[in-house]
């Protein structure tokens, strides 16, 4: 389903209510959409536009600025193999070839069973652990071609389900803020005192 399902629509309204202006919920809602479908669908963007009161072009414009939002069908596992300097020197090319061989696709492609999308990525800030890769943004350090093949086999066999949730999942347990601890949607213009979550200063202490 491309639009939000009922549960997510409720969540979407909850998210919107956290902000003084609905438009501020745009990016959280893109995450929610990606979590539901594994990528951000056209219909989801239209729905988000309706929900937060902007045009679909504005949703696409904002979303497409961010690398981690995907706008095309994406595998359950997004494998990003770093190709930048340190990793390149330490054998990133071999990792990529191993992945391409065992998945039967080129970098940029998705397997026909919808399980894997393969990408060559820029530096993932783990240069000391080169060559490295990420599966749904979970690191694998100091990889070897054999390690890549093993990883793919394990993912296929569902052995890593506990560690690596499907692409788009932000968290498996959604945080709910009890209303007595929530700051609520306060318009910045209306803020007078310090935020509610700053502990009250003990009277008479210091000066």
């Amino acid at each position: 389903m491309a639009r939000f399902n009922d549960a997510n629509l409720t969540t979407a309204h909850e998210i919107i209510a956290r902000y003084p202006r609905p438009k501020s919920a745009l990016i959280p809602l893109l995450h929610l959409a990606q979590e539901q479908n594994g990528y951000v669908t056209d219909e989801a963007m239209r729905q988000i536009a309706e929900l937060v009161g902007v045009t679909p072009a504005e949703v696409l414009g904002t979303g497409s600025f961010y690398e981690m939002f995907r706008f095309e069908p994406t595998g359950r596992y997004l494998i990003n193999i770093c190709g930048t300097m340190s990793c390149a020197l330490m054998g990133a090319r071999e990792l990529l070839h191993a992945a391409e061989r065992s998945l039967g696709i080129h970098a940029g492609g998705t397997t026909p069973d919808g399980l894997f999308t393969l990408h060559q990525a820029e530096c993932q800030a783990a240069c000391t652990e080169a060559p490295c890769l990420q599966v749904n943004y979970r690191y694998r350090f100091k990889m070897t071609p054999e390690g890549v093949e093993q990883l793919i086999d394990d993912l296929r066999a569902g052995k890593l389900d506990d560690e690596i949730p499907p692409h788009g999942t932000l968290a498996r347990v959604r945080q709910h803020i009890p209303s007595d601890r929530a700051v609520g949607a306060v318009d910045p213009d209306d803020v007078v005192g310090p935020p509610a979550w700053i502990p009250v200063t003990v009277e008479g202490a210091g000066s």
Binding site: V54, T55, A57, E58, L60, G61, Y66
Partner: peptide, 10 residues
């Protein structure tokens, strides 16, 4: 007030 065009990508 018709934001029907926008910058996309980066």
């Amino acid at each position: 007030g018709d934001a029907l065009i926008h910058f996309v990508e980066r």
